[in-house]
Design a protein around this nucleic acid. Sequence first.
DNA 1: CGTTCTTTTGATGATGCTCAACTGGGGTGG
DNA 2: CCACCCCAGTTGAGCATCATCAAAAGAACG
Lengths: 252, 252
Amino acid sequence: MNQPVPMTPATSLNLSVLKASCSACSMHQLCLPMGLGESDMHRLDEIIGRRRKVPKDSLLYRMDDAFTNLYAIRLGHFKTYQVSPGGEQQITGFQMAGELLGMDAISTDRHHCDAVALEDSEVCEIPFARLEELFGTLPTLLHHFHRMMSQEITREQNVMLLLGNMRAEQRFAAFLINLSSRYAARGYSSTTFQLRMSREEIGNYLGLTIESISRLLSRLKKQGLLRVANREIELLDLHTMRALAAGTETCS
Amino acid sequence: MNQPVPMTPATSLNLSVLKASCSACSMHQLCLPMGLGESDMHRLDEIIGRRRKVPKDSLLYRMDDAFTNLYAIRLGHFKTYQVSPGGEQQITGFQMAGELLGMDAISTDRHHCDAVALEDSEVCEIPFARLEELFGTLPTLLHHFHRMMSQEITREQNVMLLLGNMRAEQRFAAFLINLSSRYAARGYSSTTFQLRMSREEIGNYLGLTIESISRLLSRLKKQGLLRVANREIELLDLHTMRALAAGTETCS
DNA sequence: CGTTCTTTTGATGATGCTCAACTGGGGTGG
DNA sequence: CCACCCCAGTTGAGCATCATCAAAAGAACG
């Protein structure tokens, strides 16, 4: 994993161009061009700016930056976080390939959070003004875009549910199950994967401390629900893990 | 306090029709038709279905209902809540006049939460399929719609921040400040207003218990920051209330 | 290999929850 | 009109969960 896609100076027939086009992107069934025909996909390709590499730990954008582009993740993982007036940080999401970054900036034309790469990553820059122009003639694209924004809304509502009324163990199980199914949707193992974020970042996201995350991991390991070696996770019992996440079971 | 902004009977012939049109609606500077010209507003009017009354405590829609309409609130207040797999309820928002309900349903064509009127209310039904057709020829409308969805995303991110890293007192102050500024934006008093929701609903929304809300109210009252009589609230010191919400001050 | 950062583990404590009893307002019916 | 009830809200006492503080152990990096 993490093998870089070659950065291609676009516009032509050669293979390297294809590799950088939506039609050649392995994520296009999840990303914006989902459901588009060949020619429409090509029109989308034409407005997409450069493919930008984002090294680990570097900022893709920062709060209050002017908003011009959405970013489709081609490769890698990101976190987004808000900074409270008091200077506290709150991670609002972990994003992976095929997901869209920056939709929260549309309302004010300024980004509302920072986006940082959790590993060496690559994104497609999508100039939003030009995308909106395209919408006029590509209703399918428009509709899919609305679905993606709507999905972001429901995702956040699920996090509100998690933060608002789950206990620590349940939150953590829900977090693992969520990762598991997102990897599954991308064709990766639903039981074995690398955590791309630190314990601290997990804790911050879930409204818990790093120590709680560590204890939780130890407990679930002791119960035989998972194996963990550093950031490598193996879920040994998805069924009861799901039950934990649903709150229908408590692992003492 | 809370005196209604006068409904201006605008430019034309039949009064009752006008009363039900976007151009005559006192909320149109906040709602979808914001920034639209006369004729475009008229085209929007044409697709808007009936104005529907929603009595207090009744459901506007329910989770898993088929999605066909968005709803613009003309009058009144709503709450939306999710139900967790374990049957727990989590209120995800309180909505008031000028705000849009149902955007979370676009992604799956089913509603993802229940919406209940907190008082006798009235909404405009907006058939979403027809709205999307309109977008093709009304880019201004489309752009404003995107802003509203984006705003919903940032609103929820703010709630995540609140639930994820604020203490009880800070959460409650942030809640009051939020209400205050929303009423201000509608031309109502920013310091004196009615809570349309019960203590229990506030607690649920903020991830706290009803008892905590009650104690918080008592404490803030004792500190002279507010006056409260049943659901009537008067904020006596917006400045320090904002400081509490920002976390730059703690009221012992 | 030493340095540094992350993670684990333990001991203690505070915030907010639970359980319980009480108050007060509003509606209903005698 | 008053008595009563019922529900929402308030207040108190004790407790659980998770945070905080501290220290040690493991990875990662040069």
